[in-house]
């Protein structure tokens, strides 16, 4: 049975016809065409699909689209401002916090949630926070460096 789901995506109102069992990530990618949010494992483990819902990071493969009705949803496409990379994105570029890049959108969305709660996270706090984000290239060293640098840039 299809139902209309409406929410705010990166500041703009959007809506689409979905089934009750459509996942939020499917609606975002397939119906709304924002493919920056990735599906890695589809079993809630890898974090490639992390987005923000009402200001909190969530795994969009483990949420139904209908659950996002009326919510404020943020994806990687909404992070850069006026064509300029966000300081966290810039830090991932600067510190080479990516290899194949598949996990990067989820890493950045997760890191932004960390920094809004803890503006100056230690290396250990970053590693603990990112347990739900897997990098198949195992590029964690530079990801952690990038998050530290991104957090610092966001403070200044």
């Amino acid at each position: 049975m299809s139902i209309t789901v409406s929410f705010t995506l990166n500041g703009e109102p959007v809506s689409a016809e979905v089934d009750n069992h459509t996942l939020l990530v499917e609606m975002i990618r397939d119906q709304l065409g924002r493919t920056g949010t990735h599906i890695g494992c589809d079993t809630s483990q890898c974090g490639a699909c992390v987005i923000h819902v009402d200001g909190r990071s969530v795994k969009s493969c483990t949420m139904l689209a209908v659950q996002a009705e009326g919510a404020d949803v943020g994806t990687i496409e909404g992070v850069a401002l006026n064509g300029k990379l966000h300081p966290m994105q810039e830090a991932f570029r600067e510190y080479h916090g990516l290899q194949c890049g598949f996990c990067t959108p989820g890493m950045i969305m997760s890191a932004l949630d960390l920094v809004q709660q803890n503006p100056d996270p230690s290396e250990q706090e970053i590693r603990q926070w990112l347990v739900g984000n897997l990098c198949r290239c195992t590029g964690y060293q530079n990801i952690v460096r990038a998050v530290r640098a991104g957090a610092q840039a966001m403070r200044s």
């Binding site: 974090g47 909190r56 990071s57 969530v58 795994k59 483990t62 997760s110 739900g132």
Partner: peptide, 9 residues
């Protein structure tokens, strides 16, 4: 519990 995203939901 779990990871940050599990704790958020």
């Amino acid at each position: 519990i779990g990871d940050a995203q599990v704790r958020n939901r």
